[in-house]
Design a protein around this nucleic acid. Structure first.
Length: 196
DNA sequence: GCAATGATTTACT
DNA sequence: GTAAATCATTGCC
């Protein structure tokens, strides 16, 4: 079943990032359903420098992060890659969880086609830019309600124990200085689909 | 109006 | 290992 608004609107973004591991992210694009289990996430909050909304600074790009939890935040990075985030916390507080990697579950052939890859491998969705392309996510998904749109997250009954979770500092945000060391990256230990 | 740059991926000098 | 690709967003550096 789909996750409820209550799940997203809790105040502890790091806890939500941890609990999203093992959930199923699914999209329906042009009638094709594709989906995968979330195996890697990162938490972002306006309180630290790694976040686009650091310092409570609202811009056109990050405005959706200030909306209520349960919406999607998609933006283009390096002019090439769409990155997918889940907005958390209540309206007015800019927190979000970046989905960094998934393990393919539904629509493998369609995802291979979108990524222009011939055979299944960890290359399909082992990274934030890769998984959005595999799932057909682009900037038109920005601001979508995960409860009512063509994109949603399901709890499929999969439970990840603390022993299976690897926690580390986040990736690719060295510019964030001391906040780059926050242990806000969560992934499923040993999973082949986590990013490099 | 314009130049600088990034929560990355891919292909190679 | 390093560099190129490529563009929306940001702030006036």
């Amino acid at each position: 079943m789909k996750l409820s608004e209550d799940f997203y609107q809790r105040p502890d973004v790091a806890k939500i990032a941890r609990e999203l591991l093992g959930k199923i992210l699914t999209t329906k694009v042009n009638g094709f359903i594709t989906g995968g289990m979330i195996v890697e996430t990162e938490a972002y909050s306006w309180k630290e420098r790694g976040c686009h909304a650091f310092g409570d600074k609202k811009t056109n790009r990050n405005a959706v992060m200030f909306e209520k939890g349960g919406l999607s935040y998609v933006y283009l990075c390096y002019g090439i890659h769409n990155l997918f985030n889940v907005v958390t916390n209540k309206a007015g507080i800019a927190d979000a969880v970046l989905i960094r990697a998934i393990e393919p579950v539904k629509g493998h052939d369609i995802m291979l086609q979108r990524r222009n890859i011939k055979t299944m491998s960890y290359q399909l969705s082992s990274g934030p830019g890769k998984l959005t392309k595999a799932l057909g996510i682009d900037r038109s998904f920005n601001g979508k309600d995960l409860g009512k749109s063509e994109i949603w997250i399901e709890d499929d009954g999969i439970r990840i124990s603390n022993k299976q979770i690897e926690i580390s500092s986040r990736i690719g945000i060295a510019y964030a200085k001391e906040d780059a060391e926050l242990p806000w990256r969560f992934c499923i230990a040993g999973n082949k689909y986590i990013s490099q």
